[in-house]
Design a protein around this nucleic acid. Structure first.
Lengths: 252, 252
DNA sequence: GCTTGACCCTCACGCAGCGGGAGGCGGCAA
DNA sequence: TTGCCGCCTCCCGCTGCGTGAGGGTCAAGC
């Protein structure tokens, strides 16, 4: 029923100093003290600390947390609800960042240049002003980028050439399969989808089925990726998309 | 090709002051200056800043970022890959937090007391020592909790009584349906699952179909929730779980 | 009753990562 | 040449603690 600083600290995964600090600034003062001056925390204090920790974890400054907590309208359910919303929002933001990184990776893999703006888009909101201002040189430096094989990093030119050859070979076979009239969910198409996935995994990053379907959708959504595949053979972007999805479902 | 601080700041969504700071500590020094002393950033500087921002966003201290960036083995793909891993890891952590919050919400709704440990479990890793130390009073204070209706916050006793009545009525009807032998994916069962979802939404928090299936799984995984339903009628936890899933699939 | 080790207390300084302002020069459009 | 915006260099301030120093306390075991 009554806990010492140390106990509270361990339970709440914070340091004793942090509790001292919260006491100092009046955010969480223990409801009692022993004759010797030791802090004694009650269950209610623990509950308050829990809420504090949750908001902190979500990036709230202590002062604001104090305000929220002292708001008379702030019952526990309200906090939980708000935290739930904030969390799902943050998850969404992180997923966008993941998508942006996957885009960057695929752009490298396919040697597609990104605009400066896109390279910063990872961080969410986009200032339309900055966008407009930089729009002029949007397609300026990209062509130089598009040609440089060193962009993929530590791979040697030889490595890069081999990857490119494998990739082109794969593309040829997929084009042939399409020409043969095999449906996108045929075993042969799925096999080529799987090969595509493993090509990525071998050369770039571990590509799960989930990621793979994400990439597939990107190929349809982003005109540059679409163009990449359409240039190999018209209809290939959609065909590949379907084959990748079929493959993912089949393997799951 | 050469940008001023202001331009870079706007593009990268940071303040000029931040760029000054990065220059001061040598993390990102512009590759040139004008005769007047104005900082001039090159494309390479921008690219470096992009990587810096990404790691910062992931919570890395500047010093560590400097180390990572000056690591000769650190090519761009390595960074992207690492960032991708870190991001998915963080998403996982946040999803656990979401699950913990949903657990807390449902525990409140069903008037099930949580142990102090669980209430802090939101924050990930659990110290087994602290756990052992507190295990004694694990079931101590819970009974008092279990009885207090005020725990749900700002609802009046009257509100709470009404929710309880609705809830019990719903439980009775589900039990009757089970007794009638209707399968868990029958329209009637799905209707009751939907009612369950709306009961939650009306009284506590907006419950999406996705959340609802998450709750359903929790009912099976957590013995306290299971017990809650089994006490109404044996087999109800599994039955409800199936009905909720069927309902979610049907509405999607 | 006494020691011992873990735990608690109160200062008090330090640090990261900037924010924000003062005071002043530079660039360029009208 | 005037005005205005943007750039420069100090430099002080803030948050949220970390990390001692220096010293009391409590429960256990002898």
């Amino acid at each position: 029923m009554a806990y010492t600083v140390g106990q509270v600290a361990r339970a709440a995964r914070v340091t004793v100093r942090t509790l001292h600090h919260y006491d100092e600034i009046g955010l969480l003062s223990p409801s009692g003290r022993t004759p010797a001056g030791y802090r004694r925390y009650s269950d209610a204090d623990l509950e308050r600390l829990q809420v504090i920790r949750a908001y902190r974890e979500l990036g709230f400054p202590l002062e604001e947390i104090a305000k929220i907590l002292d708001d008379p309208a702030g019952d526990p359910v309200t906090h939980l609800r708000r935290q739930h919303e904030l969390l799902t929002g943050r998850i969404g933001k992180l997923q966008e960042m993941v998508a942006a990184i996957e885009l960057a990776m695929e752009a490298r893999r396919m040697n597609i240049g990104l605009t400066p703006e896109e390279r910063f888009e990872v961080f969410g909101d986009f200032d339309p002003d900055a966008h407009a201002e930089e729009a002029e040189r949007r397609w300026g430096g990209t062509d130089a980028y598009r040609q440089s094989a060193e962009r993929v990093g530590r791979y040697s030119k030889e490595d890069w050439r081999r990857h490119k050859a494998q990739n082109e070979d794969w593309g040829r076979r997929l084009a042939e399969l399409m020409a043969s009239g095999a449906p996108a969910d045929s075993p042969e198409a799925m096999a080529l989808a799987e090969e595509h996935r493993q090509l990525i995994s071998r050369w770039f990053y571990d590509c799960s089925y989930e990621m793979h379907t994400g990439l597939a959708d990107m190929y349809l959504a982003d005109p540059r990726f679409t163009a990449y595949y359409e240039k190999i053979r018209p209809g290939m972007a959609a065909y590949l998309n379907e084959a990748i999805h079929a493959n993912a479902i089949n393997r799951a």
